[in-house]
Design a binder for these strands. Sequence first.
DNA 1: TTTGCTTGTTACCGTTTGGTAACATACTTT
DNA 2: AAAGTATGTTACCAAACGGTAACAAGCAAA
Lengths: 194, 194
Amino acid sequence: MNKNRSQTEQRILEAVGKIVESEGFEAVGVNAVASVSGVSKVLIYRYFGSIEQLLAKYIEDNDYWLNSEFQIPQHDNVKEFSKSVFRAYIDMVRKTPALQKLYRWELTTNNPAIEKLRERREQIALGIINAVSQQSGQSLERVAGISTLVTATVPYLCVLSENCKVYNSFDISSDSGWDKLLETIDFMLDKILD
Amino acid sequence: MNKNRSQTEQRILEAVGKIVESEGFEAVGVNAVASVSGVSKVLIYRYFGSIEQLLAKYIEDNDYWLNSEFQIPQHDNVKEFSKSVFRAYIDMVRKTPALQKLYRWELTTNNPAIEKLRERREQIALGIINAVSQQSGQSLERVAGISTLVTATVPYLCVLSENCKVYNSFDISSDSGWDKLLETIDFMLDKILD
DNA sequence: TTTGCTTGTTACCGTTTGGTAACATACTTT
DNA sequence: AAAGTATGTTACCAAACGGTAACAAGCAAA
């Protein structure tokens, strides 16, 4: 028997990660975490208080999708900048199952951790939108509108792709479909941005 | 005690509708349906076989969002036609809670009833896309791309709006936010379609 | 070494879930 | 009227859920 609190805490959090990636946040229950981690559920309550707090901690630890992971590309050309931002966003969401599960979870659940996350997203997005608006001469609402069309479509299709392979004849389960979609996004930006 | 099978079947289906509208498909369990409908759950199994089949029947009965409810607007102008199709789609999804719950449910679940629904949606969408492509001179993939950006954003934001009021500074819980979004959609169509 | 605190285990609890057997009541047909 | 079938009710079951009390084992400080 090993007596090491921080280690078992980590084992619990790792178990949460496994469950989230495979089945989603909805499946993170006390029994499931205890079983997957091999840790008694009493300790889950002792160390994290509740499942809600455990998930809050997990989200806090793994908000890499907002900080280190997602690098805002640098470009002097506004159009190319916008394109590469969207491209980077698509890549990130597509290759991060836990992030897809988070987006899905947000549609059925609300709690302080999620709200905090959304506020930070909103801040980051508005920062980019502001910059693009200034450099492109387009109004804030216009840029925000374009941004909304893309950043809402991406998580939706990524989540959907788990159950549905084709959407409007695009194969959203493969790179080819997303490449085609990106072509249209690029085309749209070409037409709209100066 | 009334002995009337078709009547109790309808009471069961109505209970499903109530639960779906208020809490979503995820909350439709045998006990919940029995409690809300006031009908013994034994009869649910007897008359519908299983919850899956009950939900399939409910979806089949209520696919009004594809037939009668959603009227494809008529226009000789392609641009105006496209705009009014998107506008009608937004109106329909926004004012139909059960439809939002269905879109949400599809993100976590898959079954034959859902797949059948998706196939019909795909057919209808491709029909419209084809028509717009021919009349506008834009390629199929281009029109499909534009259509995807809109028809993915709409259910996503509608579902999200239950838990989140603001997205990219748009108030997605009120008409004003959606009007602004529609302005951008119209603007985009003006720029892209001939 | 003894005392006290932390860490971990076992066993249990009440509730809710999906699901069914057994029975009672009504209607229909012969 | 009698028999048979459709309808509805009651009561129960096993499993999974979230949650906790009570105890055992280890470690640290006195």
